[in-house]
Design a protein around this nucleic acid. Structure first.
Lengths: 254, 254
DNA sequence: TCCTCCGAGATATCAGATACCTTTTAGTAA
DNA sequence: TTACTAAAAGGTATCTGATATCTCGGAGGA
């Protein structure tokens, strides 16, 4: 059934796709980020196709996140980041109402692992970054206890995301960092909405800060298991917030 | 619809990127897989750019995995799959020796979760798919107990991957399935190599089959925790196999 | 009714030009 | 000699127009 089908991405019988795949192999195989590709005219003579075909191939690779193209400069090989995955995950969420919660479920697993790893072997700088994000949340909240405006909420939320991202980075596992980055964008809206459910369930901003503080304390203690538990508890609670917010009114009528 | 903004032309981004982003928003927002895009000529008049610009935009979206393009037919909106992420993960592995083990670490976490979820709520069809893959492993092994040829090993390995993929699918969480698919390709080589380390450590193919059987049994019992433990044990063991294989001789000289 | 063939429509690719941006170089003035 | 500036060189962005080839639906014949 699921036979290894190495070439199912593109039916390589178009010239542009063939060139693109060949360049991709080259880029992934033996070029480091920052290196520049030969010029379009050069590649055109090399592959014996027109410049247009080269352009299309290069545009495909730009779409795949492998190249960075700017006018007047040669194409640069790009360092990997999660953005290539982000709009894919967005589509998962949109096509399927259950997709949002599938994604949250996966994120929980990855963040719990991040917290565990961060507790076990994070550097002083890693912990400092997490602390700084939490401090930012505090300051954003201090200006908004009575009447949180949208701008303040946005600011608070942004530090909240930064807190979780700092933990993913502090895990020392780069793949976790990339995956977090890729998931953060599609989930941003959902987690922003969660604040509404948070209030509806009778919780305050201070509760949120306390939950984050507990996670940070466990990481500073180097207690991986406790950090995992604290993170799991916090995310489960956030998930309940989102469900509460969504039960009130539907997500994204647009 | 989509009346062209006059200042689009002098945006910091290129016209092709602008069109691509707009189309991406459209596709992700309100088009279902299988729907076809308007023809290139149609889009060209709509956005008031040349057909070439449309082609480049469409090629970018093909690279992002959002469209499927064939000659003579309109571009089709594509259902999401993990392939958009695969070459990104490949680059992570290549750029960094630690990347391979980072990826294995993440995979462990995701597969343990898959096993848990599969045990909790898999369908009869889902279990049947897992069983079928295991049966395939058995048959491949039966023909290769004494002298496993490369072809037989490849066959066995292919069913092995199929087993894990079936579990990811049986979890009912589609994001897990996509992530597994995206990770499978870059990891395929590593796990193929693991068989060498497996033998070096004095284990047999039967041991591998037994380990998979234990995972399957737990899933059939509906025991999520036991399935997670069995999966974790198996993957930790496989990781040791890979390390043993790599310590013998370096990976991929190419 | 079913099959075959053809034309309309769609993409694939080519060639040649122009516009504009970036980097480098050469020249000029301090 | 140094610093600043302007032009040239090399690159990408985009357009126009044309040809080749593929897909699909409909007309027409068996």
């Amino acid at each position: 059934m699921t036979q290894p089908d190495p070439e199912d991405r593109h039916d390589s019988h178009s010239a542009a796709s063939t060139v693109a795949d060949d360049l991709a192999r080259l880029i992934l195989g033996e070029m480091t980020p920052g290196t520049s590709l030969p010029s379009e005219a050069d590649l055109a003579t090399r592959y014996d196709v027109s410049r247009l075909t080269i352009r299309e191939a290069v545009k495909m690779l730009e779409g795949r996140g492998l190249l960075e193209i700017a006018r007047g400069r040669k194409a640069l090989v790009r360092a990997p980041d999660g953005s290539a995955f982000a709009d894919f995950l967005t589509s998962v969420i949109r096509y399927d109402a259950k997709g949002l919660f599938d994604l949250i479920e996966v994120r929980l697993s990855l963040e719990v692992q991040s917290a565990t790893l961060a507790a076990r072997h994070s550097t002083r700088a890693g912990v400092a970054a997490i602390e700084s994000a939490l401090q930012g949340m505090r300051e954003a909240a201090d200006g908004a206890i009575d009447l949180p405006t949208d701008a303040v909420e946005l600011r608070f939320h942004s530090f909240d995301v930064g807190f979780h991202e700092a933990i993913a980075l502090a895990s020392g596992n780069r793949v976790l960092g990339y995956l977090f980055e890729a998931m953060a964008q599609p989930l941003r809206e959902g987690f922003y909405i969660s604040r509404r459910g948070h209030e509806r369930r009778g919780h305050t901003i201070q509760d949120t800060i306390d939950a984050h503080q507990r996670i940070l304390d466990c990481i500073k203690d180097g207690n991986g298991r406790a950090a995992a538990d604290a993170m799991r508890f916090h995310l489960k609670d956030t998930e309940r917030d989102i469900r509460a917010a969504l039960s009130g009114r539907p997500l994204r009528t647009e």
